[in-house]
């Protein structure tokens, strides 16, 4: 059974404008990486925002484990069901790497005996060196910040990871390392990873690639 399902979903920014997404239906399973492709302005990021319940569809539904996301508490949904990785990382600049991750655990309400240890472990597993753990995140490189953002998304162990152009600002080597992380998350940790991307490397690694104009490739 699909963990995440879109049924006949449409979206327009306002009632009088054209629909950015029109009658879209999709299903996402655990243990797979999905790449969402499309030209600029096609509505990829909008789709990801809908999946993250940051905005709601004009028509249709999104269900998680069979439950309509928009009938749930959308904050609680984002805090525990999905982990979001933004293109611009969106870390809290006054917090260091560990604090960013700890805060995310706090918001999720997940009981973790030693949050600091847990945050440190995740960050270390994602390649953050010990001496970077307590550095202000703004002093980190783009790749490091993206790893912190992924660590934050993983900190409360959500079944779904949503990533918006996660390698868009990274060099090739770092991109490859991040792709490797997503690959492991889906295939070793059984997460449903949905990535909006322009990257051919990401698309090659994905189990399924969706073109949001309705074309489906495998």
């Amino acid at each position: 059974m699909s963990i995440l399902k879109i049924e006949n979903m449409s979206f327009a920014y306002s009632p009088n404008t054209r629909k950015v997404i029109d009658g879209l239906s999709m299903e996402f399973d655990e243990g797979k990486v999905y790449a969402l492709e499309g030209r600029s302005g096609a509505g990829k990021t909008t789709l990801l925002s809908l999946l993250a319940a940051l905005t709601s569809p004009t028509e249709g539904t999104i269900t998680v484990n069979g439950e309509n996301v928009f009938k749930k508490d959308t904050y609680a949904y984002r805090a525990s069901d999905v982990g979001i990785v933004f293109q611009n990382y969106n870390l809290l600049p006054k917090l260091n790497a560990i604090e960013n991750v700890e805060l995310s655990i706090d918001i999720s309400g997940r009981e973790v005996p030693d949050k600091r240890r847990h945050a440190t472990d995740i960050l270390t597993q994602l390649g953050i060196a010990d001496y970077d753990l307590e550095r202000p995140v703004l002093q980190m490189s783009g790749g490091q910040q993206q790893r912190v953002a992924i660590a934050r998304a993983l900190s409360y162990d959500p079944p779904i990871i949503l990533a918006d152009e996660p390698t868009g600002n990274l060099d090739t080597k770092t991109e490859q390392e991040i792709i490797q992380i997503f690959d492991e998350l889906a295939h070793r940790r059984n997460k449903c990873v949905i990535i909006v991307t322009h990257s051919k490397r990401v698309a090659q690694m994905a189990d399924e690639v969706f073109s949001i104009d309705g074309m489906r490739e495998s």
């Binding site: 508490d73 904050y75 609680a76 984002r78 979001i84 969106n90 809290l92 995310s104 918001i107 999720s108």
Partner: peptide
Amino acid sequence: YEVGVLAAIGMS
């Protein structure tokens, strides 16, 4: 921005 990030990661 802090408000936006906190709300985006699930803090009401």
